[in-house]
């Protein structure tokens, strides 16, 4: 029973926490919405499928669903244990803190990728039938996985610093990425949304220009890795010095 055994325990435990609760059901229902819209689109119109599919991807999946699901899971994988007090059971064991952080981030990123990725893939296959769709499906799922990892890492580190992690993360997503990045082009460098679009647009073989991406593939990968890496280091450092809440 080596190091991988402990990591696997933490991963399985966190997965059961993440999927055992109501929020998993809600997240799956939310994931059904892009599919519903795609079905309506196919029934009513079907015009300009590539342009509309890009709108679908950017308009609801990448701007709203992905950050929302990633932040909800990301702030709860560790934040829920802190709130409930069960974090103590992990901390009083001879387990390297980096394994706890890594397991928590990976569970949040995996569940987000599965829920949002499947949602995007099914919706795109409906709205963009035929081989044209496959390229965009692959590109968008890879982009979503990349974004899920970065958002989840940010969410985990936020949950170690504040009990209001979810609202702080949502303020970042909807004010910074949603409003400010639309007004001031320079802030797009610090927008996870743009890292997702950069990866997805670069990998889409058909119509890379349909997505409003402003960063190259290298930029999206490099900046995203920088953000995720820094957040992970910060989270491990913070957990190593974590103090249980004594006073309410």
């Amino acid at each position: 029973m080596g190091r991988n055994g402990v990591f696997r325990q933490l991963f399985v435990l966190t997965m059961r926490q993440a999927l055992g609760r109501r929020r998993a059901v809600i997240a799956v229902l939310a994931g059904a919405i892009p599919v519903l819209v795609a079905v309506i689109y196919r029934l009513v119109s079907g015009e300009d499928p590539q342009g509309w599919s890009a709108d679908l991807l950017n308009g609801i999946v990448v701007t709203t669903l992905l950050p929302l699901v990633a932040l909800i899971f990301g702030t709860s994988v560790l934040g829920g244990e802190i709130e409930d007090g069960t974090i103590v059971y992990l901390l009083v064991r001879p387990v390297p803190r980096r394994e706890i952080v890594a397991a928590k981030i990976l569970v949040a990123a995996t569940t987000t990728t599965v829920i949002v990725g499947v949602s995007a893939a099914v919706a795109l296959l409906v709205s963009l039938p035929g081989s044209a769709g496959y390229g965009l499906v692959v590109a968008s799922v890879v982009g979503i996985a990349w974004g899920a990892l970065i958002y989840a890492t940010i969410a985990v580190v936020l949950s170690l610093f504040t009990t209001h992690a979810l609202i702080v993360g949502l303020i970042y997503v909807y004010l910074w990425e949603g409003v400010i990045a639309g007004l001031f082009a320079g802030t797009r460098l610090a927008s996870v949304h743009q890292y997702v679009l950069g990866v997805a647009a670069a990998l889409d073989p058909i119509q890379p220009s349909a997505l409003p991406a402003h960063l190259s593939l290298a930029g999206s990968v490099g900046l995203g890795a920088l953000v995720a890496g820094a957040a992970t280091v910060l989270a491990v450092w913070r957990l190593a010095g974590f103090e249980v809440a004594e006073r309410p």
Binding site: R22, R23, I26, A30, I33, L36, V37, I40, Y41, V44, S45, E47, W52, D55, L56, G59, I60, T63, T64, L65, L68, L71, I72, T75, S76, G79, G80, E83, L166, I167, L170, Y174
Partner: peptide
């Protein structure tokens, strides 16, 4: 956390849903 997530989820997902369906023209 559920309340915060629920409020934001409802509002912005409904926004996306409404605008996207409204963007469909036969």
């Amino acid at each position: 956390a559920y309340a915060t997530g629920g409020i934001v989820a409802y509002w912005f997902i409904a926004d996306g849903l409404g605008s996207l369906i409204a963007s469909i023209t036969p």
